[in-house]
Design a protein around this nucleic acid. Sequence first.
DNA 1: GTAATTTGATTGTTGAACAATGCGAACTGT
DNA 2: ACAGTTCGCATTGTTCAACAATCAAATTAC
Lengths: 215, 215
Amino acid sequence: MVIDPPGLAEETASRLRSDIIGGRLPPGHRLSETRLAADLGVSRNTLREVFRLLTREGLLKHTPNRGVFVAVPSMATIVDIYRVRRLIEVPALAHAWPRHEAVALMRVAVEKARAAREAQDWRSVGSANMEFHAAIVALTDSVRLQVFFAQIIAELRLAFGLLDSPERLHEPYIDRNAEVLDLLASGDQAGAAAMMTRYLDESERVVLAAFARLG
Amino acid sequence: MVIDPPGLAEETASRLRSDIIGGRLPPGHRLSETRLAADLGVSRNTLREVFRLLTREGLLKHTPNRGVFVAVPSMATIVDIYRVRRLIEVPALAHAWPRHEAVALMRVAVEKARAAREAQDWRSVGSANMEFHAAIVALTDSVRLQVFFAQIIAELRLAFGLLDSPERLHEPYIDRNAEVLDLLASGDQAGAAAMMTRYLDESERVVLAAFARLG
DNA sequence: GTAATTTGATTGTTGAACAATGCGAACTGT
DNA sequence: ACAGTTCGCATTGTTCAACAATCAAATTAC
């Protein structure tokens, strides 16, 4: 049977979350309370609590009296997310202490990405890339910002799921991540921040272009 | 465009939220599911959905098998919140377009604060002050940042509820808000951002000192 | 072919039920 | 008295069943 400890709702939320960002539940898909509750082996009430959680995270969209759907990222979503990223990641780098412990996390993420590239595992490259940016936010030492950013990343991965060719989407940034890391580690926070700005601008362009090709 | 009926859970959440930040439910207070559900006139299941919402917002703390409590802000909470504010508000001002429509909102907030000061209504002064800072974040045009910041503000007001002498806490900042607004409106974004940095540093010191006096 | 109506399915909300858990009071042995 | 243990009780965790409210589609009427 199901393991209960950290609350059944939280557990179920994690399961649903990974089903969504893993693409097993495609954007726009409608989630029937009765059926999904049966599939997940929880009651309808518990599932409704889960829905409230994930709706607040932006992964689900709740339409009153219609049901909940997997959120469909739009261009506006992408623009908004990159706005947030610029406004958080760039200052985070600009004010970072070059010996902050999170720098080690950034380095780990870079290595992971390179290993995954070696193995041609583009999905893992994407994960490692996101890990790198999460580490940048960790430079701020703010738990609230980190939680918020994790949410943003989940939404972004949901959007990436709509796009094909994950190689073109992530490969070019592996080495740029490494450069940002080197600049920061060598004490050039301003340089790292400036590079990140260009990085995000270009990444946004690429993603938006890929989106337009779907329209 | 017809607005959606807010749903009983959302509505109840709003009610509880204002009861919390309004101080009618003091930090640390335990919320019995059965009793509160009866008081609010909703079922226990609906109330549990509300709890998930407000727990995610940081206003409630959920301890498994013990119940939910009104969150008790600590010094760490204050430090974290001000970290977030510095990292978001300062760049928001630095990159703002001086004719952005949110500037009008900032002006409205300043007027409101002055009117409330005239009436010696310090609670309203606090509200107007928060409105001013929310308007600053609105300069970014990011809905996600605005939602996140609204959460942060709710947490901060919860913390302020623990402190006495709301006059000393808010009065000194009314005119500084006006100065920040003038600098921004006159095109000196850098000056506005710099002033906001000092503003936040001092405010944080005052709040932390008031907290220490409680310990 | 379009408008109105009925029908069917799903969500919104409630109340009751029962197991699991934790707190505090009663009980024990010294 | 007193420390430690046991037990009862209230509360949370979770499920289930029921019913009203609402929407989408099928059907009927014009």
